[in-house]
């Protein structure tokens, strides 16, 4: 009996000893800032408080201002637009690429490697390369290319400098950079599907296309859900591309939630206001996660 208590105690001690480092860091650098963020969102806190001012409790004032001013709404709309285009397009493209490289053709590993390589290139570098490709006027490569393949019908666009196209230009190269990652996860999902299912349906006379819709897609459901959730959350964090190329412009057309949070909190030093944006951002991400998890649960049962 005594040895048993001893053994348990030893286990409990070891558990605490091994948890402590990570726990302390999480507490100090996640929990504390999270609480600060909620608290500051109700105050007029500045990054550097002017000497004649002290931190005052404002109640819901910051939230009221967020709803009154246009910035937050514009940023929310841009972020949603970005996610609503990028998530389906990137997921579909990733699946297509995965199907293409899921074969035993010669050089297939070479293609797989090249399709994946943009993932390891830092987003700052990717943004810079694409800003040259997307250069305005007929000298820009993308403009010149589109004009060539349409025999001159395409009018050169200013891409990143035009409020109608800037966000779409960012979507384009964001997908270019990220799609290889989802492709690999889809590929793993494809290779996980039992060959028997294809053989059985083949014997039943199913065509390749029928097999895709009745075998491949249903079997990939969990993989797809995983990819959709992670891509959505990534899309919501759009920031680097905006910081490097557009700073939210032209005319707020690329202003995103995270960029707004950054510019209010850091550039304008309004910690209180920025924290309120952060809290709302968190609630939105939380809501999306919950909705997506609920939807997948329903699907699984059905």
């Amino acid at each position: 009996m005594r040895t048993k208590t001893n053994k348990y105690l030893r286990q409990e001690m070891t558990a605490w000893f091994m948890s402590a480092p990570a726990l302390i860091i999480l507490l100090l650098f996640m929990i504390v800032p999270l609480l600060m963020s909620v608290y500051f969102s109700f105050t007029n806190r500045m990054l550097i408080m002017p000497p004649h001012l002290s931190t005052k409790f404002l109640g819901l004032e910051n939230y009221r201002r967020i709803l009154e001013q246009n910035d937050f709404f514009i940023a929310l709309m841009n972020t949603l637009k970005f996610a609503l285009v990028v998530v389906p397009v990137q997921t579909t493209l990733a699946l297509l690429l995965a199907l293409l490289i899921n074969s035993k053709l010669r050089f297939i590993y070479f293609f797989r490697t090249v399709f994946f390589s943009p993932v390891v290139i830092t987003m700052v570098v990717v943004s810079i390369i694409w800003s040259l490709l997307l250069a305005p006027g007929p000298e820009g490569f993308i403009n010149s290319f589109l004009s060539h393949i349409t025999f001159g019908a395409f009018e050169p666009k200013a891409w990143l400098f035009d409020k109608h196209s800037s966000l779409y230009a960012i979507m384009m190269f964001s997908i270019w950079q990220g799609v290889g990652f989802q492709m690999i996860i889809f590929l793993a999902g494809l290779q996980y599907i039992s060959k028997d299912l294809y053989e059985a349906s083949g014997l039943d006379g199913a065509s390749k296309i029928q097999q895709f819709f009745y075998v491949t897609l249903p079997q990939l459901r969990n993989t797809s859900v995983f990819i959709m959730i992670t891509t959505t959350i990534f899309a919501f964090k759009l920031f680097t591309q905006v910081l490097v190329l557009t700073n939210g412009g032209p005319q707020d057309s690329t202003l995103t939630l995270v960029y707004l949070l950054y510019s209010e909190g850091f550039t304008k030093m309004k910690i209180g206001y920025s924290s309120a944006i952060g809290v709302l951002f968190f609630l939105i991400v939380l809501l999306i996660s919950i909705v997506q998890m609920k939807l997948t649960k329903v699907n699984r049962e059905g």
Partner: peptide
């Protein structure tokens, strides 16, 4: 390992996965 706090720590840790680092960055800066 078996330890009592596990039943609180595990769900708490999983909940933290959803918290975007970006939300925390400004208070963390302070």
């Amino acid at each position: 390992l078996e330890f009592k706090a596990k039943h609180i720590l595990l769900p708490a840790m999983i909940a933290l996965i959803i918290v975007p680092g970006e939300t925390l960055s400004i208070p963390l800066l302070l």
